[in-house]
């Protein structure tokens, strides 16, 4: 990176702010809760992805670091899925 992509950074910032406003807008229009939850989590994921890719320089850095990140992401999803799925005690049918 001989020349620093300052315009790109500012552009990403604009996108992040835009997505945040979109999130708030989704709440204000009062859509069905399932749609809202899915949409909001999806948008949060996209925002986090942009921060990681451009601000944390993953796009330009060693790929191995991205693997560490993806591993943590995998475990995070695993934890959320297993813990929610494994919360209720099973009721054996009688």
């Amino acid at each position: 990176m001989a020349k620093e992509p300052i315009n790109l950074y500012v552009g990403v910032w604009g996108l992040l702010v835009g997505l945040t406003i979109l999130e708030i807008f989704m709440v204000l229009v009062e859509m069905p809760i399932i749609l809202l939850i899915t949409g909001v989590l999806l948008l949060a994921g996209v925002k986090a992805g942009f921060v990681a890719l451009f601000y944390q320089h993953l796009k330009w850095d060693d790929v191995a670091i991205s693997w560490f990140y993806l591993m943590a992401l995998f475990f995070a999803l695993f934890i959320v899925m297993v813990w929610t799925g494994g919360s209720a005690v099973c009721q054996v049918e009688i």
Binding site: T20, E23, I24, M26, V27, I33, L36, I37, V40, L41, L43, A44, K47, A48, V51, A52, Y55, Q56, H57
Partner: peptide, 25 residues
């Protein structure tokens, strides 16, 4: 500066999700 940035952006990412799960749903 670069190392600090990586940490700070991570804290930012955490907040993006906290904002979503507490404020928006």
């Amino acid at each position: 500066v670069e190392a600090f940035g990586i940490y700070w952006h991570f804290v930012d990412i955490v907040w993006i999700f906290l904002f979503a799960i507490f404020y928006l749903m």
